[in-house]
């Protein structure tokens, strides 16, 4: 059964969904990849996630919310990695720096690197 919500309350359910969506749109508009390349790759990853789900946990498939943006993020990292622009080690290091920044920044202050 498809849950048939009538109208969207908000475009994005979480701020990071909006951020990762906009990053891909921005990189596309700046010419780093064309949209056909993006949707081909993204579609492949969606299909892969779906068959993994069916095999490993018997779920019905992606529900199109959080899981969708996780694959969007995975696809964006893959595409930029293939172009030699990002690498996993640097991403891990930056993630660790962001965690530190959040822990060290007093509540209510903007968190910056």
């Amino acid at each position: 059964m498809i849950s048939a919500e009538r109208e969207p309350e908000q475009a994005f359910a979480a701020p990071w969904h909006a951020e990762v969506f906009a990053l891909a749109v921005h990189l596309n508009e700046a010419g780093h990849f064309c949209w056909a390349e993006w949707s081909g790759r993204f579609g492949k990853n969606l299909a892969g996630a779906r068959s993994n789900m069916a095999i490993y946990d018997g779920r019905q498939g992606l529900d199109g919310s959080e899981d969708y943006y996780l694959i969007w993020l995975q696809t964006l990292i893959e595409v930029m990695q293939e172009k030699g622009i990002v690498d996993p080690e640097t991403l891990d290091a930056l993630k660790a720096q962001w965690i530190d920044a959040y822990i060290q920044t007093p509540h209510g202050h903007p968190v910056k690197l």
């Binding site: 979480a14 701020p15 990071w16 951020e19 990762v20 990053l23 990189l27 700046a30 780093h32 943006y69 996780l70 993020l73 964006l76 990292i77 930029m80 622009i85 990002v86 640097t90 991403l91 891990d92 930056l94 993630k95 720096q97 962001w98 965690i99 959040y102 822990i103 060290q104 920044t105 007093p106 509540h107 209510g108 202050h109 968190v111 690197l113």
Partner: peptide
């Protein structure tokens, strides 16, 4: 301290930081 965002949000921040630093 500030509340830690969920893990994927931190990965998005890391990715954006790297892309900004590269001028992309």
């Amino acid at each position: 301290h500030s509340l830690l965002p969920p893990e994927p949000a931190l990965r998005v921040k890391a990715l954006e930081t790297l892309l900004v630093r590269k001028g992309l």
